[in-house]
Amino acid sequence: MAKTLYDYWFAQFDFPNENANPYKSSGGEMVYNEVLKRMIPIGWDVKSLHQIATTGSGGTPKSTIKEYYENGIIPWVNSGELNNPFIISTENFITDFGMKNSSAKLFPSNTILMAMYGATAGKTSVISFEASTNQAICAIMPKSNNLFHYTKFVLDDMYQYLINLSTGSARDNLSQDKIKNLDIVIPKEEILISFSSQILFYYRKIENNLKENQQLSNLRDWLLPMLMNGQVKVE
């Protein structure tokens, strides 16, 4: 539902106009943009990603030093986990000592993560908790909360373009510079606010469903062995 709303508003440009009618279908004025080489609604802007968001990348503490990982409580995301569009937990954790002795950094909740290397290059995911990442991930933090959901959908729409951008080397990859210089259409502020307020409901629903599924899976894994060895019986 969130993706359908995005497509309707920002791919077809049929966001609600001042009369609550679909903008483009109702004859809303479009202008040619020289940067994008296509038509966009009048009054909209085009900016590079680095103008609307800050970026960063992480690092990997040496795996041979157990103090960097043992009893770690800092979530550490690897690029393979970006196959999931929402990350609610991580497989690996590092210690504060490991983070301080590596290039790993702690990124805030509501950070967009983009894989830069290998098979997952160009894929994006969202973290709803503080986490660190490896060096194969670019963290993207929109400067405005109203741009968060919109930017995630824009980058998802760019996936095929990013795949093409990452090819041509022995190891297919993107770089922070390539990502920072991506050109993005910026709608008027009131449209972004309206979109963000509606999308927030869907995002929270998705996040809550994923967390509930994880809790049910944990309960199943705890209960099944006891059922099998007779500790628990179903009357």
Rank of each mutant, 00 (worst) to 15 (best):
K3N: 11
T4E: 11
Y6P: 03
Q12A: 12
F15D: 04
N17T: 07
N17I: 10
Y23D: 09
K24E: 10
S25V: 06
G28P: 11
M30E: 08
N33S: 14
N33T: 12
E34R: 15
L36K: 11
K37E: 15
M39W: 07
G43R: 05
G43L: 11
D45G: 03
I52G: 01
G59D: 12
G59F: 06
P61H: 11
T64R: 13
I73W: 08
I74V: 14
S79L: 01
F86G: 02
F86C: 06
T90E: 05
T95V: 10
G98V: 11
M99D: 04
N101M: 08
S103E: 08
N110K: 15
T111Q: 09
T111H: 04
L113G: 02
L113V: 03
M116L: 13
A119Q: 06
G122K: 01
K123F: 00
S125E: 04
S128H: 10
F129W: 07
F129N: 01
E130S: 15
A131K: 02
S132V: 06
Q135T: 09
A136K: 01
A139M: 11
M141C: 07
L147T: 01
F148Y: 15
Y150K: 03
Y150C: 03
Y150A: 01
V154I: 12
L155T: 00
D156K: 01
Y161E: 14
L162C: 03
L162H: 00
S166C: 05
A170P: 04
N173E: 03
K178Y: 11
K178I: 07
N181G: 12
D183Y: 12
V185C: 10
K188Q: 15
E190F: 12
I191Y: 12
S194L: 15
F195G: 03
I199S: 08
Y203M: 11
N208A: 14
N209F: 05
K211Q: 08
E212I: 12
N213L: 12
N213D: 07
Q214L: 15
Q215K: 14
S217K: 15
N218G: 13
L219N: 10
W222P: 00
P225Y: 09
M228D: 13
N229S: 06
V234P: 05
